[in-house]
Amino acid sequence: MGVPAWVWFVVAFVALVAGALFLMRDRARLTSRNRERRRWAALRGWQFAESDPVLPGQWNGGAIAYYGDGVARDVVAGSTFTADGRRKVYVFDLEAGGRVNTVISAVQCKRVHPVVVELWVPSTPFQREHMPELLGPVGQRYAFVSDIAAARALITPDLVDATEDIGQDVAVAWIENGWVLAASAPNSSPSRLERLLRGLGEIADVVDPFDAEIDPAGEVEVRGGHEE
């Protein structure tokens, strides 16, 4: 005997209601994160933007390569102090494939290093189609680099110590195109992101000390930066 039509109607109705509830929950969560990020930016005197479709395209490594460049959502742009002085920063949700996969935090260096260095925690499924070359363990992380010789000169004991301080909840930290970046969980709070920016600032101070000579051609212009 076949299933009565009213049973299929009930099943379809329940599925529709469940889908609507999930959508409302996700939308409420996104709206809450938007307000939280906006308040944080205002408190710090930084700039806020709902979205930026171009920003993630500045980078090709780390979490950008893993998830795809996508669109930057709830973007905070500003500057912060490190031990070596003031540096530009970005924080944004990376939306790819219609969902927010991670939060990207970025701190600018004064020069562009001729190598991409990705530092992944072992528990992360970091494999992708075109991985950089495996250099080996760096502290509690694995280093994948675009140039082994150049990376060896960059990875010092001070860099290892600074990287250890950013926390195992950060899946990957990487150096690329004049920036030090990291990917954290989508629900990362402003307080956690503040700590992460400080950690990235320490890494930037190690690989990019202000008292070193700077090649003007290596400087990077920042869109949307705002002085405190």
Rank of each mutant, 00 (worst) to 15 (best):
G2H: 13
V10L: 09
V14T: 07
L30G: 08
T31G: 13
R35W: 03
R39S: 13
W40Y: 11
A42C: 08
G45I: 13
A49W: 04
E50I: 11
D52C: 03
P56W: 07
Q58K: 09
W59P: 01
N60V: 11
G61P: 03
A63E: 08
I64Y: 00
R73H: 06
V75L: 11
A83K: 05
D84G: 15
R87M: 02
F92M: 00
G98L: 10
R99G: 11
R99E: 15
S105Q: 09
V107S: 00
H113T: 01
V115P: 01
V116T: 13
V117T: 03
W120T: 00
P122D: 11
M131V: 12
E133M: 02
L135C: 08
G139A: 10
R141S: 06
Y142V: 10
F144W: 11
A149Y: 11
I155L: 12
T156R: 01
P157K: 09
I166N: 07
I175S: 04
A185C: 05
S188Q: 06
S189L: 07
L193S: 05
I203P: 00
D205F: 00
P209M: 05
D211C: 05
A212I: 14
E213N: 14
A217S: 12
E219H: 14
E221T: 15
R223K: 10
